[in-house]
Each structure stands twice: as structure tokens, then as C-alpha cells.
Design a protein around this nucleic acid. Structure first.
Lengths: 251, 251
DNA sequence: CGCCGCATTGATCTTATTCAATCTGAGTGG
DNA sequence: CCACTCAGATTGAATAAGATCAATGCGGCG
């Protein structure tokens, strides 16, 4: 699927809440998976935790599909602040939409396996097969929607709403993948979450604690979140809020 | 050019400040203009001030090029808050990146003339001419960069920085168009600016006043901004800030 | 054992929002 | 021509949310 899981999207949700940043990998798969159907299976590449797949400004040579592990897509501001754009999970594509050089950086959160697809080949194929070009167009258009969803969520919501929406998005992604929707294993640190949601780590931490005290979640270890009251979490996310879904997204 | 003028972009600036939301219509023109080269010139459409070209959720039937006037591209949140995504000026395209239905709304700020291009024809052409599909891909990829630029600016900056960056972006757009870079005629209201920058109109107004008192700008009428001290404005925008440029962008 | 990275918690402070009033200018109609 | 109205803009005072500064806790690893 195309990477959009805060960047995680749900079409039904979009109907209900037009304007919310959750989108559905399921229907996006149609676009992104088709991208590589016609291409030879690329080489495997393994990146260690904290290692970069590519950096902002690097010449774009490949598109990657995450096989295992997690990739954090982000951009830096000149003053050193960071905006996380998405977290790519297995099945998601990263590196799409680069025009010459990568507009984002991609760093592995943990040891990650990637399948590589040459951009040269991709472009050659696109010149021969017009449908592939349209697929590329559609895949990037999906990412555009995802980026705007994130913008909507992060810029107009309180800390609680952002974090609640983020957790819901993770839960939905789990659900879509056939995993336990109530047991979230966070593949990212508090810093990553803070940089995604435009908060400080202190605020993220405090908000986690508040949710725990309010009985919305359990928090055994900082990495393990159990959703105790999904409805209340929805409400917390939701004073008119569009469900956050931008966890992972190609870039 | 492709609509990106807070959504206004400058490649040189991007080099200097990787991560800033200013982009260059000039080099984007190569992508977007090519889109319609091969198509029959479409019908002219005139929309009155406040009238919508299309609304979020509408079935997408056309792509439009602004001939005269200004179009405000925005999305609503369920709770009624609004995020302005860009302001399209003459030469900019709007409506690109729609997959079936429009993900955004487009409203004329003033009486506006548009040139219409049928999506059906565009897609037909793209199926025949693979290069057109790639052009579409590139145009949307540009918009993706633009959307992320806006995200970076709006989510990590103070009110002064956002407004300063916004004014600089407008100034650069004027410069690119061969107009006076120091005399800005704002085609949008305070509400539009506030909704673009993620602020309230009061804060926008106060910040304008502060800039005026600090001698950075003149403000004869609320619509007419004269830049008195461009360097200071850059500084105000810039505590490491990437120059805001997202004024207009296709959608 | 002690260090180090990460997370949590507390106290204070800054910033922008909110609520409220006033101001301005462009119509409109008498 | 002038009073009236209304939308948009400005200004002020109080408030609240999150950032910042600072300290402490926790767990893994050398």
C-alpha cells in the first residue's frame, strides 16, 4: 500500500468526516501496488536503526517498498526544528514524488528491510506505458491529500486532540492489517511523535499521562499502548476533528 | 505556472533555506504549462466574487487556469474551522490532483476569469501520450512539496514569522511577475490570511500593526502593503525560518 | 555500579486566543 | 447629500494552552 497511515487512511471515515487526515491504505494499494507490478523485483536493502535511506537534497535514484521495520519521513527547518511527515510501515512505498532530488529525508526507526525499484527503470516504463504515468500521478495525488490532512490536524487542534487522533490512526492501521486494534506497539519515540504532531516531548508525555489517568489507555511501557476506551478516545480526538491518520506516507 | 505562491517558490531560496515553503512558479511553469500545450484551448468561465469554482467532494470535471482574478483554495474541518491551502493568481492552475472528486474547495476572492480544460480529454491524452502522464505526476509532486512547505511554516513558527514569511512570498511573486516587489496589493482578506497561517484575524491584525510600528512596512489601507525594510522583514521571518511562499497552488 | 538515552513530572512563563468594543469605508436608501 | 448599515479591520484586557527550564525516574549496557 501507499504509505499513508498518519498516512493511515480510512475511506469510510473520510465520508463521515470530510477533512480528516485518516486515509485508507487499502484503496491506495490499487495505485501504488500497480507501480511495481510491471517492474522487475528490485534488490533488497537493509538499513540499520537510525540509518538514513536517503536525505533531503540527495539525488533520487530509487523508490522503496518497506518489507519489514519502520521508516520515519521528515524534513528539517533551517533552525533545526524537525517536522515528521509520516511513518512508513511494511507495505508502504517511500521516495515517490521526488523530482530529481529528494524533498524529504527517510530514516529507519529500527532495522528495516527495503525492496528497491530503480527510478530510471520506472521512468523508462512510464514512457512506454502511459498507464504507469497515470498511476504515478494518482499515487502522488494520494500523498498530497495525506499531507494536507496532516496540515489540517496539526495546525488546528489541541494537544489532546492531536494525540488522540494519532492513536486512533494507529489503531485503525492495525485493524486494517488484521492486527489487534487495541494493542499498539509504538515503533517511534516521543520525539518522533512530538515532531509529527508539532508538540514538545513534554506535552506528548503529559498528554499520554492524562489519557492514562482518564482511563482512555493503559501505558505499561512507554512503547506499549492499550486502548481501554476507544469511544472516549474518539471523542477526545473529535471536537469536530477529522481522524488523524498520517502515520506513514511515501515521500 | 503551477499555482504555488505561498505557493510562490524560489529555487535559489530553496537552496539557501532547504525546508522553506517558497517555491518558484518560474521553473514550475515547465511542468504545468506543458499540461495544456497539447490540449484544445478550453472554454472561458467567469466566476463572481465569493462564488465557488468547485467544492470539496464535487466530482472533478475540469482543470482550470486562472486568467484574471484570484482563487482561494481551502478545506474545512468538521468543526467549521478552515485551512486555506493557497491563493491562485493569474497563470496558476487549480483542480489538479483530484482523484474522482475534489479534495479541496475553490472560491473566487474577486471576479475571476478561468480557462477550463476537460479532465476527460486530459486523461484521454495522457493515455495516448505517456509524457503527459509524467507531466501530471511532476505537477502534483510540485504541489506536494508546496503543501509540505506550508506545513513546515505554519506548524513551527510564531505569528510574526508566519506573516513576515507570507509577505516575503508575496513580494517574491510580484518580483517574478515583473511587478513592484515592494508594493503589495493583497487580494485576500484578513480572514483568508489568518486561515492560511493558522492564526486568528486579531493576531494577524496585531502583527500587521507591529510591523508598521517597527517600520518594516507601511499600511495605507488594509489592502495595500508597502515593504519599507525588506531585510528586516527577512529577519523577522527568519529565525532559521524557511521563506514562506505558499500563496497559491493548484489543487 | 554507573553511565546514558529516553521518558516523566513540576513550576513558571510566553504566546496567541478569546471576548469585547470601537473604527473605517463602501454601499444603500431616504 | 447625508444618515444608516454592514462587513471587515483594529485595538484592548483577560485567559488558557503549550513551551521552556529544571529535576527526577527508569532501563539497558558496558
Amino acid at each position: 500500500m501507499l504509505a499513508n497511515d498518519y498516512g493511515i487512511v480510512d475511506p469510510m471515515v473520510m465520508r463521515r468526516d470530510p477533512g480528516f487526515p485518516l486515509r485508507s491504505n487499502a484503496h491506495m494499494a490499487t495505485h501504488a501496488d500497480a507501480l511495481t507490478d510491471t517492474l522487475p523485483e528490485g534488490k533488497l536493502r537493509v538499513v540499520a536503526a537510525k540509518e538514513h535511506v536517503y536525505c533531503e537534497g540527495d539525488t533520487a535514484t530509487h523508490v522503496y517498498r518497506v518489507e519489514a521495520g519502520h521508516i520515519c519521513i521528515y524534513r528539517m527547518l533551517p533552525d533545526g526544528r524537525r517536522q515528521v511527515l509520516s511513518f512508513a510501515a511494511p507495505g508502504d512505498f517511500i521516495g515517490l514524488g521526488a523530482l530529481g532530488s529528494h524533498p524529504t529525508s527517510a530514516q529507519a526507526s529500527s532495522r528495516t528491510r527495503l525492496r528497491c525499484f530503480s527510478l530510471t527503470q520506472l521512468h523508462d516504463s512510464a514512457r512506454r506505458d502511459a498507464r504507469l504515468g497515470l498511476k504515478l500521478y494518482e499515487a502522488v495525488a494520494e500523498e498530497l491529500v495525506s499531507a494536507r490532512d496532516l496540515l489540517m490536524t496539526v495546525c488546528h487542534r489541541t494537544a489532546s486532540e492531536r494525540l488522540a487522533a494519532f492513536l486512533i490512526a494507529l489503531s485503525r492501521r492495525n485493524h486494517r492489517r488484521g492486527e489487534n486494534a487495541a494493542e499498539l506497539v509504538l515503533p517511534m519515540t516521543r520525539v518522533d511523535i512530538a515532531d509529527l504532531l508539532g508538540l514538545t516531548i513534554e506535552t506528548v508525555s503529559r498528554t499520554f499521562t492524562k489519557f492514562r489517568l482518564d482511563g482512555l489507555i493503559d501505558l505499561e511501557q512507554c512503547i506499549l499502548v492499550t486502548i481501554r476506551d476507544a469511544a472516549a478516545l474518539e471523542t477526545a480526538a473529535g471536537g469536530g476533528m477529522p481522524p488523524v491518520t498520517q502515520i506513514k506516507q511515501a515521500s
